[in-house]
């Protein structure tokens, strides 16, 4: 496809740790707040105080239940643009407004040339593009491009708003093209994965899976119980005998 840049070594993206995401929505509202006045300004809301409130959000947090009974679990699941390496959302765009940046792989919409045909949103398997009816253009996660390179911010602040806000530390930002980056290392050590890898868009963002549930973290979990005597009347006496010793203060 002619319109994707040649693959570059820098792949900026997010890593989301599903093991510690509590579904608090901080990333979602913080994203909305930053971006409604930032690169994507505005993120319009319709019927904000009425019967059918809806608006453009670049990041949404779902929760799911998996399975039933003993092994079931609840999963919180934030979802935004994956900044795919080979996404059709870019190639289907008739105007070139949807593009992937050569230098860092960020997928952006140029709000000045987008005609609002919505085709890119149809091409995204992750439902990550949001059309702004009011503004007439497509909006999407910008990876906070106006934060991460913003020289007016302190160096430590040059991270996406959602990462900055996330109270549990479930979100990390970095270069997934650099095997030595913290994000790449955490992906490697935790078996991080991209969503719908089979689909072929090569999502850059990665998710760290929930760790297995540990109903016992004690190797010798029975140690203490072994010393627990049978429930008979002697338990009290045994305890008293044990406790009857010189205990200096």
């Amino acid at each position: 496809m002619t319109s994707l840049p040649a693959p570059t070594s820098k792949k900026l993206g997010l890593v989301i740790d599903l093991d510690i995401c509590v579904g608090c929505q901080a990333c979602a509202t913080s994203c909305k707040e930053w971006n409604t006045g930032g690169y994507s300004a505005p993120l319009s809301d319709h019927d904000p105080y009425g019967a059918d409130p809806s608006g453009a959000w670049l990041n949404r947090v779902h929760s799911y239940e998996i399975g039933e009974g003993e092994d079931s679990r609840t999963l919180h699941f934030p979802r935004a643009c994956m900044h795919c390496e080979e996404p059709d959302c870019v190639t289907v765009c008739p105007t070139g407004a949807s593009y992937k940046r050569q230098e860092d792989g960020i997928v952006l919409v140029n709000p000045d040339t987008c005609i609002g045909c919505k085709l890119c949103s149809w091409a995204c398997p992750y439902g990550a593009r949001e059309y702004d009816h009011d503004d007439g253009v497509m909006k999407k996660c910008s990876l906070c491009v106006d934060r991460i390179y913003n020289d007016t911010l302190a160096e430590s602040e040059r991270i996406p708003a959602c990462v900055r806000a996330c109270p549990t530390g479930a979100r990390a930002f970095g270069d997934l093209g650099d095997a030595d980056s913290d994000v790449s290392k955490s992906v490697a050590s935790r078996d991080g994965y991209g969503l719908l890898e089979d689909f072929g868009y090569k999502p850059v963002n990665k998710y760290l899976p929930p760790r297995p549930r540990r109903n016992s973290n004690i190797e010798a979990g029975t140690q203490a119980s072994e010393t627990i005597p049978a429930a008979d009347n002697s338990a009290t006496e045994k305890l008293f005998a044990w406790a009857d010793r010189v205990l200096s203060r």
Partner: peptide
Amino acid sequence: VRYIEGNPDHPVNKGVLCGKGSAGI
């Protein structure tokens, strides 16, 4: 108000901000 963010120096939240706080506007 353009943006509300957590104060990294603050003892309570150490820079992070919850879903409500980020919707303060």
